[in-house]
Nucleic acid binder design. Structure first.
Length: 940
RNA sequence: GCGGCAUUGGCGGAAUUGGUAGACGCGCCAGACUUAGGAUCUGGUUCGAAAGAGUGUAGGUUCGAGUCCUAUAUGCCGCACCA
């Protein structure tokens, strides 16, 4: 019987559904329950284009682990859901008027269909989507909790804001004298979710603000539109309060070093000192932050960020106009301009500071190379040892004092933190490292500063001026925000007539008619009723994409719960994600926000682990592999002649051809289906070809077949997988043509999971062939006792595959199966005892065919529930000698011997060994190697 | 500029703890079966005629290095005026 993968796959997918084979249960009551294991994929945003062949890569890997762990006897949680809020659906809605809910629904349906075909073992009953009110009520709930919490820096955890209030009531006499509004304003500075006027990344084309990780080089990551800086009143999350814990937490989790480094980089801890500098003629000093306390003696000027609050204090009357002009100029510059044009700019304030060590007067400048958001927004400039200060000093002709012996600062600064200090008073003669420590101690002692740790991580801006997102559970009374009570959640996203912002620049929710809060009756009412005494306006912004994706992994644990995001019991059982697989693009976004969110919930006591993802693997990107045809554009070109790739370097054609993308689906193993090409697009209808052998197409009979050995070879290149390159491969087509099992195997076979690699269909036949050959082994199963060789093959395979899965090295398992298949079919093995085990081992990788093969051996039960076999070393070893290998008539093996033997003694001992003697035949070994302890290598 | 990762045949890639380099697959070559082959099966395939050489390059540690160390080149990724 042929390997009819279509029938097999359909049959078993239906069977699994029927039996509810992948439904996962939380343990109930007294019953101890199996050991839990939680494997998670980063849930996708369901785009209109559907899945391409790159998306399932990580899903296949996690599916293999999930199935393996099941077979190992774990209770495995392996869910899938959808990150359903997002910009594309909204933009589509603006263009077409189609409600985003409808497009999203349609796209999800398509995704589910595509995923189902690949045979993943998801428990679809646990699926979540971020745009479901049942889901986003918990996103809103978490926001409310953040609003009602502050970060206690002494205890290093979030605490209820009511604690702060009662403390102030007791300890701060001014608190009682404040009006309600003033009290609210003061609390706003402490809340973890707070409203603030902040400089934001505003993207006019998208009509919304963006978080820092959504902006790259002054352009929006999505769409690539220019982004400008604006001050707006926005919701923010106090992520920065968690900077220290987010950094320390990295040591507890099993992520790759490079990903941890990216996060460390983003958090950007730097240890330094805050120092106070007096301003000439003023009493109040101002504070700067530096990591180079050792260079104080070389400070020749000070610089403030343009937005610094110190600016107004230090500007003198006669410099006022100049400074104002500069500030105005800085303000109108976009982020993009700043990056593109990094020339030195700045202005003198007219004031002078006093260097606390040298007592010298130094001028204070303003420049946009100093950032307001970092440190104190003010620096001490040491031009000799900081390249930015150096550039500034050269431009404004300020003095440069070298502080390190032997450093030549006539052309450029010496930034390295090494060498011996000079010109530095009490630090002279010290190494830089020691000088930093000495100076820190000194400033503490003299009370002119303190040791300080700074983080680069900023608070997350949490408002988006968009429609398709979670509404804030917030209304405004007396211009201050108040929460909608938890029991009224979810606050459902209202209907709007138009998804565009309103004409007066309000977010799209400004178009909603029924969008006001009746405080008395606790309900949403028509906004015409707003009277600001009982009915109040609701927040018009919605939450950003990362809101819904920050805690979704918790919801899977208990997705039907309508009392809590996740019950205590469910969370105690599943605890955290054991294995999380997804792309690197979330390294500084989702993976920071999720960790923050989880730590906040941990502080609240809602979750029992303070890190959400124990082990994380970043699967590589699958790039496209584009194919090209080469149009002849030389003399007498008709524009219709295409030259085979192998000929384009010939003198006849060299430099006279133009590569043109051709749909990869018309190409097989780089050979063009010329007939399909002619039918592909009208302009290729009359295409003529010069084939690989140099012959031209027969004009009378253009529709030649492949039989004539006239191939047209295409060129290729690795590019991003995209429609415009005609290199998108749809998994549906692969499943149709080769089957889901082949697709799964082949994606794994392509290379290491974590590496980026091009999708190249050229090898897929080999994998498919393997499955077919394996299939044929199951034709005539017999019940005989397996031989030693057969068992050796089998146990080698068990050992290898087990090791591979445990180490997430899936690409090396497929060859192991191929080897086993080769060996066993060479041995003509058809023993049930062997074949059934092969099916069990193959089940995580190619579940459908494994299920069918298992069925042929067993007749009942599901292979996915079959116990994972153990290997037995006994079958792998040979009589006392460990791992003897024969090759080219030589033998090499290792034997354990006592320490301290001489070479001669070893030789004798080796010859005395029965097994060695067998190989040596009484001859002296050519080489004997004694490695420190007792391992010996013998080469004959 | 800072940080991380990579570099092995014609190609994708194996080599798990420092111990047979090139597993497995593609491609290619030869053969078989075929009217036919883009099907299937069998054998061969690192380079070199051979001696030999060989894991980007140059050194080092080691009995032994693709693997460890030092320098260097190239490519990819992340961050980037963060004091």
């Amino acid at each position: 019987m042929d390997y009819d993968f279509q029938a097999i796959e359909k049959k078993w997918q239906q069977e699994w559904d029927k039996r509810g084979a992948y439904e996962v249960k939380n343990p109930t009551g007294e019953e101890p329950g199996k050991e839990p294991y939680y494997v998670l994929d980063m849930f996708p945003y369901p785009s209109g284009a559907g899945l391409h062949v790159g998306h399932p890569l990580g899903y296949i890997a996690s599916d293999i682990v999930a199935r393996y762990k099941r077979q190992k006897g774990y209770n495995v949680l392996h869910p899938m859901g959808f990150d359903a809020y997002g910009l594309p659906a909204e933009q589509y809605a603006i263009q077409t008027g189609q409600h985003p809910e409808i497009t999203t629904e349609k796209n999800i349906k398509r995704y589910v269909e595509q995923l189902r075909k690949i045979g993943f073992c998801y428990d679809w009953k646990r699926s979540v989507r971020t745009c479901d009110p049942d889901f986003y009520r918990w996103t809103q709930w978490a926001f409310s909790q953040m609003f009602n919490s502050y970060y206690d820096t002494d205890r290093q955890q979030a605490r209820p804001i009511s604690e702060l209030v009662s403390r102030w009531e007791k300890e701060d006499p001014t608190w009682q004298t404040l009006s309600e509004k003033e009290q609210q304003a003061r609390l706003m500075d402490y809340r973890i979710a707070y409203l603030a006027d902040t400089k934001v990344n505003w993207c006019p084309q998208l009509g919304t603000v963006l978080a820092n990780d959504e902006v790259s080089e002054g352009l929006s990551v999505r769409g690539g539109y220019p982004v400008e800086q604006r001050v707006m009143r926005q919701w923010c999350l106090r992520v920065s309060a968690y900077a220290g814990r987010l950094l320390e937490g990295l040591d507890k989790i099993d992520w790759t070093e490079s990903l941890k480094d990216t996060q460390r980089n983003w958090i950007g801890r730097s240890e330094g000192a805050e120092m106070q500098f007096n301003i000439k003629g003023q009493d109040e000093p101002f504070t700067i932050f530096t990591t180079r306390a050792d260079t104080v003696y070389g400070v020749t000027f000070m610089v403030l960020a343009p937005e610094s609050e110190y600016v107004q204090r230090v500007v003198t009357e006669e410099h006022k106009t100049e400074v104002e002009e500069y500030l105005a100029w800085v303000r109108h510059r976009t982020e993009r301009e700043r990056i593109a044009d990094r020339k030195v700019t700045g202005v003198f304030t007219g004031s002078f500071a006093i260097n606390p060590l040298t007592e010298k007067e130094i001028p204070i400048y303003i420049s946009d190379y100093v950032l307001a958001g970092y440190g104190t927004g003010a620096i001490m400039a040491v031009p000799a040892h900081d390249s930015r200060d150096y550039a500034f000093a050269k431009h404004f002709n300020l003095p440069v004092i070298p502080l390190i012996e032997g450093a030549d600062v006539s052309e450029q600064s010496f930034d390295a933190k090494e060498g011996r200090m000079i010109n530095s008073g009490i630090l002279n003669g010290l190494e830089v490292k020691d000088a930093i420590a000495r100076m820190k101690a000194y400033i503490k002692e003299k009370g002119i500063g303190r040791v300080k740790v700074n983080y680069r991580l900023r608070d997350a801006i949490f408002s988006r001026q968009r429609y398709w997102g979670e509404p804030f559970p917030v209304y405004y009374k007396n211009e201050m925000p108040y929460l909608i009570p938890d029991e009224c959640l979810p606050l459902q996203l209202p209907e709007v007539k138009d998804f565009k912002p309103t004409e007066d620049g309000q977010p799209p929710l400004g178009n909603a008619q029924v969008w006001a809060w009746d405080e008395k009756n606790n309900q949403v009412v028509d906004k015409a009723l707003i009277d600001n005494t009982t009915v109040f306006p609701l927040e018009l912004c919605t939450m950003p994409g990362f809101a819904g994706s920050s805690a979704y992994y918790l919801r899977y644990m208990d997705n039907k719960n309508d009392k809590a995001l996740v019950s205590r019991e469910a969370n105690r059982y599943w605890r955290q994600v054991n294995l999380y697989i997804g792309g690197t693009e979330h390294a500084t976004g989702h993976l920071i926000y999720s960790r923050f969110w989880n730590k906040f919930l941990y502080d609240l006591g809602c979750v029992c682990e303070d890190e959400p993802f124990k082990k994380l693997i970043n699967q590589g990107m699958i790039q496209g592999r584009s194919n090209f045809v080469y149009r002849y554009i030389g003399e007498g070109a008709s524009g219709n002649l295409y030259i085979s790739y192998n000929l384009i370097e010939n003198p006849e054609y060299k430099g006279k051809v133009q590569p043109i993308h051709v749909d990869v689906n018309l190409v097989h193993n780089d050979v063009l289906d010329v007939n399909a090409f002619r039918l592909w697009m009208p302009q290729y209808k009359n295409a003529q070809f010069v084939y690989a052998d140099g012959s031209k197409m027969d004009e009378d009979n253009p529709y030649i077949s492949m039989q004539q050995e006239k191939n047209y070879i295409c060129g290729w290149a690795v590019e991003k997988m995209s429609k415009s390159m005609y290199n998108v491969v749809n998994p549906d087509d692969i499943v149709e043509h080769y089957g889901a099992d082949t697709l799964r195997l082949y994606e794994m076979f392509l290379g290491p999971l974590e590496m980026s690699k091009p999708w190249d269909t050229n090898g897929i036949d080999g994998v498919h062939r393997f499955l077919r050959k394996l299939w044929n082994m199951y034709e005539n199963i017999s019940d005989g006792e397996p031989t030693k060789e057969e068992l050796r093959s089998l146990h080698k395979l068990i050992k290898k595959v087990t090791w591979d899965i445990e180490h997430y090295s899936f690409n090396t398992s497929i060859p192991a199966f191929m080897i086993a298949q080769n060996e066993l079919s060479a041995l003509k093995c058809n023993k049930r005892a062997v074949l059934v085990q092969i099916a069990v081992l193959l089940a995580p990788f190619a579940p459908h065919i494994a299920e069918e093969m298992y069925h042929r051996c067993q007749n009942d039960g599901l292979v996915i529930d079959a116990e994972w076999p153990e290997w037995n070393e006994q079958y792998l070893e040979e009589s006392g000698v460990k791992y003897p290998v024969q090759f080219n008539g030589k033998v090499k093996f290792t034997i354990e011997l006592p320490k301290g033997m001489s070479k001669e003694e070893v030789e004798k001992a080796v010859l005395a060994t029965e097994d060695a003697g067998k190989y040596l035949n009484g001859n002296a070994p050519k080489r004997v190697i004694v490695v420190p302890d007792k391992i010996v290598n013998i080469v004959l």
